[in-house]
Write a protein that binds this DNA or RNA. Structure first.
Lengths: 370, 370
DNA sequence: ACAGCCCAGGCAAGCGCTTTCCTGAGGAGC
DNA sequence: GCTCCTCAGGAAAGCGCTTGCCTGGGCTGT
């Protein structure tokens, strides 16, 4: 067992229980990880040869040496230092994703799609939660650039904020200029590849359905005004209602946080401020669920007294009572397509894919009351 | 503007619209990112000085030089290469997290806690989805080691699989031996720091409540047998029922996928196989929701004809109808504590924190039917 | 039997950054 | 006015890895 003294000190004890008994001290100064050089030394070969064996280089290596290297790798529990590898062979393999919050069901679904494609292609994903903070979003893009990621996917909604948008565009451009790939989900004023959920058409679908069912006094529970998603969904809804001759004055629109509690709050405000509403439209399912809960707590029957509709068709929509009528957006697909665009080689011109919305009719939306 | 020809070629055009118009070709050979050397050259200083300015080193630098460096950084849109930095200054700042699936609401919540703490401490998180595949879990640990992460948090349930457990323990030990920190959530036979959800006590709480309400014919909708989480929850439940003199024969337990559809399937099987059940206990809320949906589809009234209870108290539990009685586990806290353990300096002896469970009484669980 | 080839394996450069150590210039002290 | 100290700035040595290029030993061919 040809191991230099130095090498030995780096060698882990094979007996696991030893580790169990004695744990590294408070601030272990870092018992250095075995390096390629350690492996080479132990195998009695040059680092070059060790590297070639480990990476399965095309260059042939004699079986005996190969054997020795492999054994040393196992003995030392050697794992190549990913950073050193990336430095030496600039072959970016990880991709960055910026979402508002993975634990929000909407992004959870989108992320599932992103991950699926990334994993299929052997890419690691770094997920960054911006928590709807534009500044943090900017920082993350910067950081991902520093991480030399192969691609960046922006999965959140865009903002109505010219300064931010310009700054973001600039950072993305700087990144793309160095060969990085970018794909965005939704409207971002980004001049590159994008996949768009059909927010506006979805809003129209829902508006048309409301007209069909005879609703004329409709309250809208909207998310934050600054999100382009809100503008688009609301725009579609408004357009369809206008087509049907249904008015939608501003006081029937309430902006709140894009979540359950925001939905409940906005619903309460609307009910108190606008009497005689026959339907409540929430601009995402989380808000709709909040509205549902509030209505139930007030003992208002759905859809007999008031109808409710949502947006997104998140899994929960089917499970609440009454089941939620909503506009389905192919969330997983949205993520999958975006990752595909980001990972496919860039093309000369911008690719934009629009993923269609579909109305899902369930029990929460009925004919207008009275 | 002292810029060598070479430096110039690496310089991005300041006009963003130029980038808008002309995008990098299909497989851009990577217009190299500006490097520290570029910055130094442009600022007319040495790389050492540039580095010191950029990193806010304690070593003083004259204001004029500092100014010049900062300007060069801005001009070149310089972002330090994170890998090179990590190589040169082995100061690990990212932490790895292995979960079953971030988009599963349970892990979404846990992850939220993990992220919160990590972000507060300025750590980047790499999230790895194992999709309940032990092999993938192993691979991820290996990969995280290669990434030189400062810590690894294992957030999934443990498995009843001696081979896997041994392999995992070995890999973790190897990692810890080089100064890496590890924290696990749940039972993993890992000899280091851990935070435990009170699965067994939670099961007991629920079992006791069922007894109190007079249930004697209870069906259990369980997740995969190999998960220690299942064993523990079931164990607690079984123990409390035994205490109350309530039998729980094996045919009243159905194992299925740990999600909504699994819950529905298992519920259907139980109803068909075991007549006269007065309560259905699902071992997580997703399964409970599936059961609820199935019961509703069969027109069975809850809780009048049959009661339902879940586990976890995920957000959805409060929104379904009837609202779900469930065992609350502090999921976010679980994540937060685990990350804290992982990031705090190691101690001489193992730290294990148990986070308590609490019964949340809602409408889905009532007295045993007639 | 000798020149010429082939090829496994090693040498060393270099990826981009940090940091130690050294240098040289300016200022203080006698 | 000269020596010594101080301190800003630079040279250079790595960090761990990959890879182009070179070397030298064993073959082949005549």
């Amino acid at each position: 067992m040809p191991t230099s003294g130095q090498g030995l000190s780096r060698h882990r004890c094979g007996n696991l229980s030893a580790t169990t008994a004695r744990r590294p001290g408070p601030t272990t100064p870092g018992v250095a990880l075995a390096t390629l050089a350690d492996v080479a030394r132990r195998a009695g070969v040059s680092p070059a040869t060790a590297s070639r064996v480990i990476n399965g280089s095309s260059k042939p290596v004699a079986d005996e040496l190969r054997e020795r290297v492999l054994r040393a790798v196992a003995d030392l529990r050697y794992v190549p230092n990913a950073h050193a590898q990336l430095l030496a062979r600039p072959q970016r393999s990880v991709v960055g994703v910026v979402v508002h919050d993975v634990s929000d069901p909407y992004f959870a679904e989108v992320t599932r799609g992103l991950q699926r494609v990334a994993t299929d292609r052997g890419r690691l994903v770094i997920i960054c939660n911006s928590y709807r903070n534009p500044e943090r979003e900017l920082e993350y893009v910067e950081m991902l650039r520093g991480q030399q990621v192969a691609a960046i996917v922006l999965a959140g909604s865009g903002y109505h904020d010219a300064d931010f948008t310009a700054l973001l565009a600039e950072k993305l451009a700087a990144y793309e200029a160095t060969g990085g790939r970018v794909a965005v989900i939704g409207r971002h004023e980004h001049p590159g590849d994008a996949v768009m959920p059909a927010n506006e058409p979805g809003g129209r679908l829902l508006g048309a359905e409301l007209c069909r069912l005879g609703h004329r006094r409709i309250g809208v529970i909207a998310g934050p005004r600054v999100l382009t998603t809100i503008t688009d969904r609301l725009g579609g809804l408004r357009a369809a209602l206008a087509d049907g001759g249904v008015p939608l004055p501003d006081e029937r629109i309430r902006y709140a946080d894009f979540d359950r509690d925001g939905g409940a709050r906005a619903a309460a405000e609307l009910l108190d401020a606008v009497p005689g509403l026959t339907a409540l439209v929430a601009l995402n399912d989380s808000m709709a669920v909040g509205a549902l809960t509030l209505l139930r707590s007030r003992g208002i029957r759905i859809p007999e007294e008031i109808s409710v509709a949502g947006f997104d068709d998140m899994p929960v929509a089917a499970d609440v009572t009454p089941a939620l009528t909503t506009v389905r957006l192919p969330l997983v697909e949205l993520g999958a397509r975006a990752m595909t665009l980001a990972l496919d080689p860039a093309t000369d011109r911008r690719r934009v894919e629009v993923l269609p919305a579909a109305l899902v009719r369930r029990a929460s939306l009925g004919p207008a009351a009275g």
